[in-house]
Design a protein around this nucleic acid. Structure first.
Lengths: 158, 158
DNA sequence: TTAGTACCTGAGCAATTTACTAGGTATTTA
DNA sequence: TAAATACCTAGTAAATTGCTCAGGTACTAA
């Protein structure tokens, strides 16, 4: 589990897509303008996201990206792990370095903590976060005409 | 809020100290051996931890480091922010770059998510995690003769 | 068919972070 | 004093981050 500005870019970009879910694809150029990220950097991020089947790309005029699943079915943990792609095997894990009990113990402790963090982030879906900003575990996965509401966020930023 | 292997090292090291709380200071050499981290790297980490008043250093033979507060009063978020030290002001935040509403919106979204993650990690204290691995909010802060128990973690690592 | 728009690939790069090495100084205990 | 330990400074190779540039490929409207 890793959490950096890279994951932050990815999550905010995915939220951009979630907000326009059901309204046709969103171009990377739009996201680039909205979030002030370079287009090529976004392309790199979305290559990862597409590789992990979180988004679909649609070419041609009027094309862009859209979520490949319902915002209810995409968690923040999904996005971050898709970006990180195979991180967290850092220390013993292969367990050949483990000699004494105490080392195993601290590793065990961290792996438990890491799992708790993952479970927490996995409980936050794009939809649930857009709706009320809360972590909703076990979403109902309603396949209806999803309309993402965005209440009380029109305060000025300056 | 940043989460990387650096924070992982710091958290496991602090857990090492929490386990020996009330049993005299622990040397960095011991932690270095237990966790297989270089001594100087630990020194850098503990310089930050000391700067943020999470640990106390005791020089001379028989010296080492110990927690400056009760394990109940130190959260995982405390450790990670002490290591990170003033990160998360990355994008607009100074808010001069914010032109349109939508950019503010995504920033608002992320800051809310970041706060949720922080609150979650802030609910996990060293003591509560050692005891049962669960996130206990609002610990009772018992100032008694803390004995950190470590049940059911003696499985072999190989 | 052709221009426009989108996605894709890969190289490269400055800045930062990571994890570590080397060498000191300061302080305390025995 | 001598040993143990914290503490400090500086450097550094490797990786990561965030980004740019330069070209490609695929699709669609005209």
């Amino acid at each position: 589990m890793r959490l950096s500005t890279k994951g932050r870019y990815a999550v905010t970009a995915m939220m951009d897509l979630a907000m326009h879910y059901g309204q046709g694809p969103v171009t990377l150029a739009d996201i680039s303008e909205h979030q002030d990220i370079s287009l090529s950097y976004l392309e790199q991020l979305f290559a990862r996201l597409k590789k992990n089947n979180l988004v679909e790309g649609l070419r041609g005029p009027g094309g862009g990206y859209r979520l490949s699943r319902h915002p209810d079915a995409i968690s923040v943990a999904d996005v971050i792990t898709a970006i990180g792609e195979g991180i967290d095997a850092t220390l013993c894990e292969g367990s050949e370095d483990c000699q004494d009990g105490e080392q195993c113990l601290t590793h065990e402790l961290w792996s438990r903590l890491g799992k708790e963090i993952y479970d927490f982030l996995n409980g936050i879906t794009l939809a649930s976060f857009l709706e009320n900003g809360a972590a909703n575990k076990s979403p109902e996965h309603s396949q209806d005409s999803m309309v993402v509401s965005m209440p009380a966020l029109n305060k000025s930023c300056a």
